[in-house]
């Protein structure tokens, strides 16, 4: 049996496929050309194969997102790499005031198919300006969709889904996922299986083998998958607490209605994420869940985030600030009482 494809390989293959299949596709970013192939190697081999449409740029995040918007405006499908998602702050004006606005501010729908890829998140010791999960800062901007990479969602499908929206999309890619394996064939491990649901967010549902209605439903973006599954495993084996995990591919826009049947099977719901606490994606979900399920829930939605803190560099300090599997499990145990 061959080893499962690594997430970074899957992403790289998706970018190759996009450039091979779509003559209007471009990939733009800093240090993305061969032989270097990008800081995380997501773009390896692309420039050798498509030198005209793979553009290694100066260090100009705002500029290259603007260039991508110009390419999108002329009917192309650019994918821009932010070397670290933290630097998307430098492109905020282009995303907020130009690319997303242009979809509707001219009184008719203007197609702006473009993707900004954002290597995201901590637990790698890169420190306060290279480790953040900034999804929450981009939520709620009309015509800007946020997606997150996961080991369940094939990146070629995700890219196709994003570009078919014909509006700017951001793809958040938790950096710790790159070296992990993609899950295949509905199997996570010996205890857990998964399926992809048909809701607009293309949610992956992870569930224990041979399980009825779970005690908990956990909603989390793709970057939390491994930590969530680790917590679920311990809870199942040590405390006989059963959890299901829902991992939406699209974080925003997000509507919980299509998932109500699934989430209402548990009386306890948790939203876990790696953003600094307050004003987060999880709060948006909790508000929606409360609207629909208030009377059915045993307790308010449990919100778990990183500490409202900068992300320290030293391993032990960083570990304490970000949401870890152990903290996730502990919080679920306490809230199960």
């Amino acid at each position: 049996m061959t080893r499962p494809e690594r997430v970074i390989g899957n992403l790289n293959r998706a970018l190759h496929k996009l450039l091979d299949d779509d003559p209007r596709a471009y990939v733009v970013g800093e240090d993305i050309a061969d032989p270097y192939g990008g800081a995380f190697k997501a773009t390896r081999g692309l420039s050798d194969r498509h030198p005209e449409r793979v553009i290694s740029s100066p260090i100009s995040e705002g500029g290259i997102v603007g260039v991508a918007a110009g390419l999108a405006l002329t009917g192309n499908h650019p994918v821009v790499e932010m070397m670290f998602s933290d630097f998307a702050a430098l492109a905020f004006d282009q995303l907020l005031n130009f690319a997303s606005k242009s979809v509707s501010m001219y009184g008719r729908t203007v197609a702006m198919g473009m993707v900004v890829r954002c290597p995201t998140g901590g637990n790698r010791g890169y420190g306060p300006t290279h480790s953040q999960s900034l999804q929450k800062h981009f939520i709620g901007i009309p015509a800007l969709s946020l997606h997150e990479m996961s080991p369940f969602h094939d990146n070629a499908d995700v890219l196709t889904a994003m570009l078919s929206r014909e509006q700017p999309c951001m793809l958040f890619e938790d950096k710790t996922l790159y070296t992990r394996g993609m899950h295949q064939g509905g199997v996570v491990d010996d205890l857990f299986r998964y399926e992809l649901l048909d809701d607009p967010s293309r949610t992956a549902r992870v569930f224990p083998v041979d399980c009825g209605d779970p005690d908990w439903i956990i909603l989390a973006p793709g970057g939390l998958t491994e930590r969530a599954v680790a917590a679920m495993r311990t809870l199942l084996l040590e405390e006989e607490v059963t959890c299901e995990l829902l991992v939406p591919s699209r974080l925003y826009p997000f509507t919980v209605e299509p998932l109500l049947e699934t989430v209402s099977r548990a009386r306890r719901i948790c939203v876990a994420e790696d953003s600094a606490a307050d004003g987060t994606w999880g709060e948006m979900l909790a508000q929606q869940l409360h609207q629909h399920l208030w009377r059915r829930l045993a307790r308010p939605v449990l919100l778990l985030s990183a500490q409202p803190s900068v992300i320290p560099t030293a391993a032990h300090l960083e570990h304490a600030v970000l949401l870890q599997a152990t903290a996730l499990r502990r919080a679920l145990t306490e809230a199960s009482q």
Binding site: G70, L73, F98
Partner: peptide, 25 residues
């Protein structure tokens, strides 16, 4: 304002990189 190949927008300097992208195309 956006009409045919004419586009205006209100944030200073923002349209230069966009125009560069259009010129690339």
């Amino acid at each position: 304002i956006y009409r045919d190949r004419y586009l205006s927008t209100g944030v200073q300097g923002e349209s230069l990189p966009v125009a560069a992208g259009v010129a690339l195309h």
